[in-house]
Structure formats: C-alpha cells, structure tokens
Amino acid sequence: MTQDTSQESLSAALQTPSRRFIPQTAIVLSTAALIASGGVWLYQQQAMEQLKLDVSRQLANNKTSASQLTQQLAENTKLQQQFVGKLSLLEAKQAESLNQQQALNNMYEALTHNETHRALSEIEQILGFASQQLQLGGNINGALLALANIDQKLTQLNRPELISLRQSITRDIDTLKALPYVDTIGISAKIDSLISGLDDLPLAIDSYRQAPPQAEESVSITAFGRFSDDLWHQLKQLIKIRRMDKPEAMLLSPEQGFFLRENIKLRLLDARTTLMLKDETSYRSDLAAALRYLEQYFDQKSPQTATSIATLKQLHSQDLVITLPELGTSLAAVRSARTIAERAKQ
C-alpha cells in the first residue's frame, strides 16, 4: 500500500499544471490604471516643460530687470555723486556766506556802537541845552520839541539797552505836557491891543466938557420964542454946578493928557517885556499902575474904557510863574547809557 501511494504521487507530479482563470474586470482595471498613470506622467511632463519654459522666461525677465536695475543703480550712483559734489559746493558756499555774515555782523555791531555813541553824545548835549532853556527861560515848547526829536532818534537806533532811556524821555514828555499852559503870545497881543486903543479912550475931563444935547425945537416956535431960548441957554452956560469925585482929573491940561497916555503906554510896554522874561512881580506892578491911571483919569462910563479896564484886570490876575520840572532823570539815563556804550566798544 505504501508503494501504491508513492506511484500516485509521482504520477501527479509529472502531470502539467492546469492554467488558473483570471477575471476580466481585473484586467480592465489594471489597463485603466496603466493608462491613467501614463496620462498623469504625460501631464506631469507637459507641466514640467511649461514650468521650465515659465522659469526660463522669468529668468530671462529677471535677467533683463537685473540689467536695467544695475543700469539704474549706476545712474543713481552717478546722480548721487553729482548731488554729493553739489552738496559739498553748497556747504562750502554756506560756510563762506556764514563767514561773510559774521564779518558783516561784526562790522554792523562796530558801526552801530559807534553810531550809538555819537547819538548818545548828541542827545546829552540836546538834553543839557533843553534843561537850561527850561529852567532859565521857561521854554516848555522848546523842551518838548527837543524831547520829541530825541525820542525819534532813539526809535531809529532801536537798541535794547536804550529802553530805560526812552522810558525816561517819555515820562519827561508827559510831565511837560501836563503843565498848565501860559499863552504868552495871546497876553502880548492883548497888551498890544490896549496900547493901540489907548489914544481913543476919553479922559474924565472930556465928559464934563461936552455940551448937553439940545432938544429938538418945534417948527411952530416963533422967532421971538427962539431968541428967548437962545438967550436963556447962553445964560445957563455961564454958571455950571457939577460934582467931581476926582478933582485931580479936572486939573489935566491937554498936554498933560498926552503925557499921561504915553506914560500908560510905557507901562504896558514894560509889562510886555517882563512877560517875556517871566518876571511876574514887575509884570503885575506895571499892569497895576496902568489900571490905576485908567480908573483915575479916564471916563469909566465909556464902553472902550470899561473894556480896557476889564482886560487889564484879567491880565493882572494871570499867573506867569510855573514850577518847571528838571530833566535830571533823563540826563542821568543818557549818561549811564553812554558809559555802557563806551564799555561795550572797548
């Protein structure tokens, strides 16, 4: 039995093996997979070629851009070099301009200090003269004019160190403007008017010499009546009784009346002179004498005489002496500024 089994195994081994059945679906799928793989490979190849083409084109563009950029950089470098050269030139010119400006400033400062020193010397002289005229002659208008000119000079100088001096000048101008005004020219004109009208003033004796006004005669008066009236008038002229409160006025002769008028004129002329000299005592004395003569020897009932007396009284009450300020503060300020200018010049 064992031998039979061995023979069957040998015969089975010597037989040709039968082919196995492969299904159709697997073949189709395998073929489709191969075709798809081929398609993908072809697509990848085309995409790779396109990518290479794009990359080559981009590299070419980049190379052109790099070339243009290099050229532009070269031009920018050239422009920058030109700009640096111009900037260096401008810096050199600016440095030269600064040096020139500094030199001009130094020259200006020197000239300004010299001009300030000269102006301060001139201002000191003007202030001294104005102060003398103010104290000796009472010339307020002249002092105001001098101070105004000084303030104008200080404005033109426009120096910060002269501010205190300008303030002192301004205070003195305000002080002088606040003083009461004495109309010397107006007073002098009134005195001249009194002198010119003195010859027309009637004396007290002239009022007594005038004949009383005659009454108008009626047309119906007869010749006899007219003769009797004339006779009676002539008789009344022989004797006159009048009351004289100032008998010395009746003693004036025409020649004495002339000298009286001339004496009053001389008094008024003296009053005008003392007015200019600010001599209030003599001024009042001369006007008081002229007023006394008018009241004593002239007819006060006359409108011209009354007007002249009223004018004399008004002029007599006029104050001439005014306490004038000194310009010492401004003088001290200008001297101080001059000292500072001299130190700065050194």
Rank of each mutant, 00 (worst) to 15 (best):
D270R: 15
E280Q: 12
T307V: 06
A289L: 02
D270Y: 14
E295C: 06
T311E: 11
T281K: 07
K278D: 02
R267Q: 15
S282M: 11
K301M: 02
A306E: 11
A306M: 11
S308F: 01
I309L: 11
L294I: 04
Y283E: 03
F298P: 07
Q304H: 07
S302F: 00
F298E: 05
Q300C: 02
E295Y: 00
R272T: 07
R267F: 14
A306V: 09
D279F: 05
Y297W: 08
F259C: 03
Y293H: 08
K278H: 00
Q300D: 04
D286W: 08
I309E: 07
F298H: 06
L277Y: 08
N263P: 06
A289V: 00
Q314A: 10
L294C: 05
R272E: 12
I264M: 13
R261T: 12
A288F: 03
R261V: 12
T311S: 10
T274H: 05
D279K: 01
A306N: 09
T281G: 11
T307A: 12
D299M: 01
M276A: 08
Q296V: 07
D286Q: 14
A271F: 05
S282K: 10
A271C: 07
I264V: 15
Q304T: 08
D270W: 13
S282F: 08
L266Y: 13
Q296W: 12
F259K: 11
R267G: 14
L315D: 08
L294T: 08
Q296P: 03
K278W: 04
S282G: 13
A271H: 01
T307K: 11
T281V: 09
L266I: 13
N263E: 15
L268N: 06
E262A: 12
A310G: 06
L268T: 03
Q296T: 15
D270S: 15
L291Y: 05
